[in-house]
Design a protein around this nucleic acid. Structure first.
Length: 719
DNA sequence: CCTGACCGGATTTTT
DNA sequence: TCCGGTCAGG
């Protein structure tokens, strides 16, 4: 058993073995946090302090949960591996609880509820606005959606919200109220509801709460800095009895404020749990000294902060390499070239030593890098953006399946009632919608009535009856068929497959293959003996990083998705004012600090080599714009950085031209690659000499063009 | 009812 | 640039 603790440092060992009472582990980037959690669970089991089913561990993604389970498994002797260890995300855990007990809450909710994803939510909100005749121009659905989610996460309901003084608030409340009513009517829960209703359930039914409190003797929460109020409440409820709560996180990596995550949950932990012990893990095992020094320097610019300095015994490493590209296309090309070069040099090393990540602020940036990879024949893995379960054809197929289980799922109904086209048009659907609203029915029920009473024109009635028949026919198969057969039946009998085949385009063929893939996924679920319900739940709660491939040579993703991951080689791209930091946060100092934490997360993903790039021109809204270097670049210490000259013919355009008084031509005194010192811009590197002009790149300040120079420009000795 | 052409507006990050 | 919504014609 002591082998469990052997290769842990004293801080880590303390975090693993302090098993009684609340424990706060502040774990700096790369401090072996995941390892500590896995070892702690293994330790609890190994010491006989708990049986597997008495432990609940919460991770941020399903993938992390899966890996955590595996790690624990490997740490344990075979004799200790029995029993079910529950490692899941907050959302999956809540679904589990609600599928058991939601009936108790009463109202229209039952345990057969449907989960509405962001997409379904958006459609529903649009429908609500339309029904209330609210102008979408004045009240953009996205904003309403955001505001509703925000309100719900703050624990507000339409009833508890302050009576609206201004008409805008009144309009919002009306939309909020209707949205909640429609959700309830469809027996649907949105992502926020999963947490909220679980909390409500446990509060209202002490016997249920006590059952869970008794069961979980030990609770561990990862990424605690990113928990939101309902998650906090849930943790409080679950830990009331044993208080053996261990939360692990890093306030410097709190990046989910927009999702109502509250960094105070971790900062005030010792106040929430007065008995708490605190352990800080400050030794970094991941990055080189240079990378860590840059990261420390960056994060120190945040004012609201729990001060800690990470150290490492790792080698000094290579300087951080900065590159300023003339435009976004060149940026992407250059990154891929550099990546190929880097990996070629290390071709003799195992994949784990050479895999790379390209990290960007927004998903939209991925396209150029994908194209560059494809041009050079580099296979890549793209995370997020358009993951498998978000593809239209997959969501369509899933909507059919959802409707089989819950015909009152209006979002599913609307999605596929006329996909493929079966003669159920806009006006017909509007009549159904109006009927449903008037009678307080779901779309499905309204449709059945409309068919029975023959109120619609014969053609429409026949088309609807055909659709209703199709769904019933498929429903009849629910009991008897395997999931794989059921999915196949859905895509063939609905005519979906035929539609794609008839289309005959390359894209349609692609979509057909995706559907085939779904059948495969269903077959795998059959192997696990999953029910249709479980299959759908899992599909609704997949996270972007779940389809991450270990040790892929190149992975493209947002910085958010990269949280918790590490790569030998990392490119952080698009370091421009307005992009990273994003325009939307620049005028709010708190949000800017969150953005800086995001940048901190980005650079601390790198183990060996870090690249930072900026494009001087970038298309925004299809219009080319000049960019300024990100303010974050200036926060990187100069002596950790090496500036790189653009290779080949690609030459950067300077962002400004500096004219100095005395017309002393400078170009013949300097050569490409010279290091220079300038009075105002600091140390730079000559990246271009031509026509008596000199382009000099200054880290964090972009490229400046010098026509002539006075004394302040001095040449430094080459290193 | 369906299709295709046209126009206007949007872009942060995610369970 | 791209997406979604609107409108006219088949």
């Amino acid at each position: 058993m002591s082998a469990l603790l052997d290769d842990l440092n004293p801080e880590q060992r303390a975090a693993v073995t302090t098993t009684e009472g609340p424990l706060l582990v502040i774990a700096g980037a790369g401090s072996g946090k995941t390892r500590v959690i896995a070892h702690r669970i293994a330790y609890l089991l190994d010491q006989g302090l708990a049986r597997p089913e008495q432990i609940l561990a919460v991770t941020f993604t399903n993938k992390a949960a899966f890996e955590m389970k595996n790690r624990v498994h490997q740490l344990l002797p075979p004799s200790r591996r029995r029993g079910e260890l529950l490692v899941s995300t907050f959302h999956s855990f809540c679904v589990r609880v609600l599928r058991r007990h939601l009936d108790r809450l009463g109202g229209s909710y039952t345990r057969d509820f449907t989960i509405y994803d962001t997409d379904d939510q958006g459609r529903l909100i649009k429908a609500c606005l339309k029904e209330l005749q609210i102008d979408e121009k004045q009240f953009p659905p996205r904003m309403i959606q955001y505001a509703i989610s925000r309100a719900k996460n703050q624990g507000e309901t339409p009833e508890t919200m302050a009576p609206a003084f201004d008409p805008r608030g009144e309009v919002f409340l009306k939309a909020f109220r209707l949205y909640e009513a429609r959700l309830a009517a469809a027996n649907a829960l949105d992502f926020d509801d999963l947490l909220l209703l679980t909390v409500r359930l446990l509060r209202r039914f002490p016997d249920v709460a006590e059952a869970y409190q008794d069961r979980f003797r030990y609770i561990l929460i990862d990424e605690y800095q990113d928990t939101n109020p309902p998650q906090f409440n849930l943790v409080r409820l679950l830990t009331q009895r044993h208080q053996n709560l261990c939360v692990v996180g890093d306030p410097d990596q709190a990046i989910y404020g927009f999702r109502a995550a509250d960094i105070r949950n971790i900062l005030d932990f010792e106040r929430h749990y007065p008995q708490a012990k605190t352990i800080v893990l400050t030794q970094n095992y991941r990055s080189t000294k240079i990378i860590l020094r840059a990261a420390n320097a960056v994060i120190r610019h945040n004012r609201a902060r729990w001060e800690k300095q990470l150290t490492t015994h790792n080698p000094v490493g290579e300087p951080i390499r900065c590159f300023v590209a003339p435009n976004a296309e060149t940026e992407a090309e250059w990154v891929i070239e550099e990546l190929i070069r880097w990996q070629r040099q290390r071709a003799h090393l195992p994949e784990t030593e050479t895999c790379a990540a390209i990290l960007y602020r927004t998903n939209a940036q991925s396209r150029l890098f994908e194209e560059a990879c494809r041009r050079r024949g580099i296979p890549y893995v793209l995370v997020g953006g358009f993951s498998f379960y978000q593809r239209a054809e997959i969501k369509d197929a899933l909507a059919y399946l959802r409707l089989l289980l819950n015909p009152h799922d209006d979002a599913a109904f609307e999605r596929i009632v006329n996909v493929p086209a079966r003669g159920i048009g806009k006006s017909t659907l509007e009549s159904i919608a109006a009927w449903a609203v008037r009678e307080g029915l779901s779309r499905w029920a309204a449709m059945e009535q409309a068919i029975a009473e023959g109120v619609l024109n014969p053609r429409a009635t026949a088309a609807l009856a055909g659709f209703a028949g199709l769904i019933r026919e498929l429903q009849a198969q629910l009991e008897s068929s395997s999931l794989a057969d059921l999915v196949s039946a859905v895509i063939t009998r609905s005519g979906y497959l035929e539609m794609l085949i008839r289309e005959g385009t390359l894209e349609a063929e692609n979509r057909r293959q995706n559907l085939e893939e779904l059948v495969t996924a269903a077959a795998e679920a059959d192997d696990r003996r999953a029910s249709l319900r479980e299959f759908l739940d899992q599909a609704a709660l997949v996270s972007d990083t779940d389809d991450l491939v270990d040790n892929a040579p190149v992975t493209l993703m947002t910085v958010h998705s990269a949280k918790g991951l590490e790569f030998p080689l990392v490119f952080v791209v698009g370091l421009e004012e307005g992009l990273f930091p994003h325009v939307r946060v620049m005028d709010d100092s708190e949000e800017l600090e969150e953005e800086r934490r995001l940048f901190y997360v980005a650079i601390t993903r790198a183990k060996q080599q870090l690249y930072l790039t900026q494009a001087q021109r970038r298309r925004v809204y299809g219009e080319e714009r000049l960019t300024d270097p990100s303010q974050f670049l200036e926060e990187i210490p100069e002596d950790t950085v090496q500036l790189l000259a653009p290779s080949g013919s690609a030459t950067a355009e300077p962002s400004s031209t500096k004219k100095l008084p005395r017309n002393q031509i400078v170009s013949d005194q300097f050569r490409l690659g010279d290091r220079v010192e300038h009075a105002t811009y600091g140390t730079g590197q000559v990246v271009r000499v031509a026509d008596g002009k000199l382009d000099i790149a200054f880290p964090g300040k972009g490229i400046k063009r010098f026509v002539a120079a006075a004394a302040p420009l001095t040449k430094l000795p080459r290193k």
